[in-house]
Amino acid sequence: MKKRIKIFVIVLVIVGLISLFVWYLSGLNFEVLNSKGPIALQERNLIYFALLLSLVIVIPVFSLTIFFAYKYRESNNNTTYRPDWDRSFVFESLWWIIPSILIGILAVVTWNSSYQLNPYKSLNSNVKPVVIQVVALDWRWLFIYPNSNIATVDYFKFPINTPVDFYITSAAPMNSFWIPQLGGQIYAMAGMSTELHLMASSYGNYRGLSANLSGVGFSGMTFSADAVSNAAFSNWLKYVRTSNNRLSLSNFNILAHPTISSKTINYYGVYPNLYVKIINNFMSSKSEIKHKIFTKNNINMVGM
């Protein structure tokens, strides 16, 4: 009897701890699953799909492991012992074929989704995209709005339901540009420009970060991506234009100097083609790129 009470208490404690844990988890923001834009949503659905498909293998493996280990234990004499039975065409075919079919299904999904969610692919939308050029610095993020002649540090705003075209480079070691609630990441590399096309479908200040080690200021390389209404966005643009800070080449060099800081900055008046200039800084003159590459979608780079 006493033993039963003991077991009961242990079970109660475990259940209590697990409920406490679940209660604590329910208060957290699961950013990868709590999607706020179409790209993040599709990526999340892919994760769920792959997880469910995997259960087709996981459940049999777990059940068989427990069942076999229990049933064929040495002390159980009610089983037949067949020490020389070591092959079965049917069984072995089964676990070559069934996983192959599952992986076949997943392969098709992988191939298609690689195209659908290719980070370089522009989003389908009737709304004209906002262009933001992102520069990873030591250890801050610079966001240049080439069409509005403004730039910001460690935060940016954009209207919801509007595609945002990010062009991403680095003036520092390799970083990775990631806003979990809007969609997956891509590397920021010096001398190169990568792209990411995201969109927010609801308002919010979304946490953005660097996901690749870049030196002592790495943990602090976070920023806020603020999805706002169209009106709020144009008001904000006007507000930034009142800034007295100019992003001249010399000011950029000061900004690019290694600094650990979470202070946001607004700039009005950006050195023409600064983004291209930064990329070319890391390239020999022979391979210098023309700024044409970054005028996709017929967007004028300078002025608005």
């Binding site: 792959a50 989704s113 690689s114 659908q116 980070p119 990775s176 891509i186 996901a211 690749n212």
Partner: peptide, 12 residues
């Protein structure tokens, strides 16, 4: 192993 899913898990 699904690249777009990895975009959300890479380096996490």
């Amino acid at each position: 192993a699904i690249p777009p899913a990895d975009f959300q898990f890479h380096n996490s």
